[in-house]
């Protein structure tokens, strides 16, 4: 069967590629061999953020090259890297998190709520909202709203206040997860037992069994109910 070819425009150059490919597989079909702009190929790693437009439409659109289907006549460029500020800090030394946030990322106050970040997020997050939550000191809200971030950098490329929202969010999530949320008692207790060697003998005894004896025990396991 003849493949149906459609036009796409990669960084200003026109190509014809089979329809139905992703931006990434279309570029590989053309003959690009990636070192940058390609990572996990599954939507997790943020290597392949891409901007594109369609003819006759002023709207700037975004997607991950690995998981965005090509659209006929689209013209695109990848943003494999975007310069960003990352503050250095020691989580153990943070006493007043709001003060720390304003010191580490003073530009956070420059967020004017324009929403350009929202339009630029391929994960459909709303950086504007998690930045606002962080400014209010609502750590839980900011952490939860930003959790699906893959740190591709597209929000930072569009931010009119020149923030790097994803690095701010990472600081907030780490502080929240480490210091706001309590450490579960069950993990503290278990690790006390582990450090005291409470299970060492039992594991050793199991490890000393023959393969036949282990197989018997294995088949007799009782499973917790789903």
């Amino acid at each position: 069967m003849e493949e149906k070819l459609v036009d796409i425009n990669v960084m200003g150059k026109l190509y014809q590629v089979p329809e139905g490919l992703t931006i990434m597989t279309a570029m590989e079909w053309i003959g690009y061999k990636f070192t940058r702009g390609c990572g996990c190929r599954g939507g997790f790693c943020g290597a392949c953020g891409t901007f594109y437009r369609l003819p006759g439409n002023y709207k700037l659109q975004v997607g991950l090259a690995c998981s965005t289907k090509i659209i006929p006549s689209m013209y695109l460029t990848q943003i494999p890297y975007f310069p960003s500020q990352k503050a250095l800090y020691d989580l153990d030394e943070i006493e007043n998190p709001v003060k720390a946030l304003l010191e580490l990322y003073p530009e956070i106050k420059k967020c004017v709520g324009c929403g350009a970040c929202v339009k630029a997020c391929p994960q459909n997050l709303r950086p504007i909202d998690y930045i606002a939550a962080a400014l209010r000191g609502d750590w839980k809200e900011a952490a939860e709203l930003s959790f699906d971030c893959i740190m591709c950098g597209l929000c930072a490329s569009r931010c009119t206040g020149e923030l790097v929202p994803y690095n701010i969010a990472l600081f907030v999530r780490r502080y929240f997860s480490k210091s706001v949320r309590p450490k579960p008692k069950h993990i503290i207790d278990r690790n006390k037992e582990i450090r005291e060697g409470m299970f060492d003998e039992a594991v050793k005894a199991l490890a000393s069994l023959s393969e036949e004896e282990l197989k018997k025990k294995y088949d007799l396991r009782e499973f917790e109910k789903l």
Partner: peptide, 18 residues
């Protein structure tokens, strides 16, 4: 299996959002 619970605590202390 010995180190497993220790690793979960290590990640929690680094600020992983379990």
């Amino acid at each position: 299996v010995h180190d497993a619970p220790l690793m979960v605590e290590w990640l929690k202390d680094l600020g992983c959002m379990f």
